[in-house]
């Protein structure tokens, strides 16, 4: 088997273990390329049957419109169930307080909405598209990663995980985060997308866009982004290498219009994928701290 076949077979195996071991799992779907790849893998794992889990989107309200329309079209094609948890609801209920100022982002708030959604629906496993090559705290995480009833990850007390035998037994209230594409690199994902001809939101490809310079990076101009006279605004050819919400994902200068261009661009890049994530740059341990709080 080629390495992509190997990675694919492993991911399908993990998805089927989730189906077999849990009562009420869910697939966390952000509309980014990794979760779109997960949906493709779920089709391979369970078709012609239905998915044994709904898709769950935690919506910060600060989405790229292209991602949302892509999501809705994908769901319609799949005929699977979508559950949306709104960060706006958490704000309206007074559970979280929105950040203010020019660098305000709802990234941190979505953890609360995620945990509330998990509790509301009683999910015992949440499948996510995180990869170990993305970030050094993620490089440490198990494929079945147990969270306590407060959603917290305890990196110092991870369960042993031997061979491909995945232990999903938990106590009531706990849940497991599952990462079927743990062993994929960014380039593997793109090569797979190309091989399988998987459709993606248009913002992954080069397009003309109004962008604002923030802390050395180009952010997409959006109605909820505070822009004033001191800001540098430009109209550029860009694409998004990673897609979170609009306040935490920076654009990269790019002329890559096709998958081959993107693969070549990543192959020769000297910056890592998460170099364009504002949320990771807060501190050395930004990801670890968020994971301990319940981030996926």
């Amino acid at each position: 088997m080629d390495y992509l076949d190997h990675l694919e077979a492993e991911a399908i195996y993990i998805l089927r273990e989730v189906a077999g071991q849990f009562e009420n799992p869910a697939l966390l779907f952000s509309g980014g390329k990794d979760s779109i790849t997960l949906v493709h893998l779920a089709k391979k794992a369970f078709r012609p049957g239905k998915f044994p889990f709904p898709l769950v989107h935690i919506d910060t309200g600060h989405n790229f419109p292209e991602t949302i329309s892509f999501r809705d079209q994908l769901i319609a094609e799949l005929g699977e169930k979508l559950i949306v948890g709104y960060v706006q609801d958490s704000i309206d209920q007074g559970k979280v307080v929105e950040q203010t100022g020019k660098n305000a982002s709802r990234n941190a708030l979505q953890t609360v909405t995620l945990l509330d959604t998990i509790e509301q629906y009683g999910f015992d496993a949440c499948i996510g598209g995180a990869r170990r090559d993305e970030e050094k705290a993620r490089a440490k995480e198990r494929i079945f990663s147990v969270r306590d009833e407060f959603g917290q990850w305890d990196p110092k007390r991870q369960r042993p995980e031997l061979w491909n035998i995945l232990n999903g037994r938990i106590h009531k209230g706990e849940n497991v985060r599952v990462f079927p594409i743990s062993n994929w690199t960014e380039l593997d994902v793109w090569n797979y997308i190309k091989r399988e001809n998987i459709a993606l939101p248009s913002i992954y490809f080069s397009h003309q866009r109004e962008v604002v310079l923030r802390n050395g990076q180009w952010m997409a101009a959006a109605p909820f982004l505070q822009i004033d006279d001191t800001d540098t605004v430009d109209y550029k050819s860009v694409r998004f290498r990673t897609v979170g919400d609009m306040t935490c994902t920076a654009a990269v200068d790019s002329e890559a219009v096709a998958l081959d261009d993107i693969i070549e661009e990543i192959r020769s890049s000297t910056i890592s994928e998460r170099g364009a994530r504002i949320d990771d740059k807060v501190s050395e341990a930004a990801m670890e701290e968020r994971k301990k709080q319940g981030y996926f």
Binding site: R132, D133, A139, K140, P155, K156, Q158, T185
Partner: peptide, 10 residues
Amino acid sequence: TIDVAYKYFQ
């Protein structure tokens, strides 16, 4: 080092 870290290169 407390726990395993996985690293990828080619």
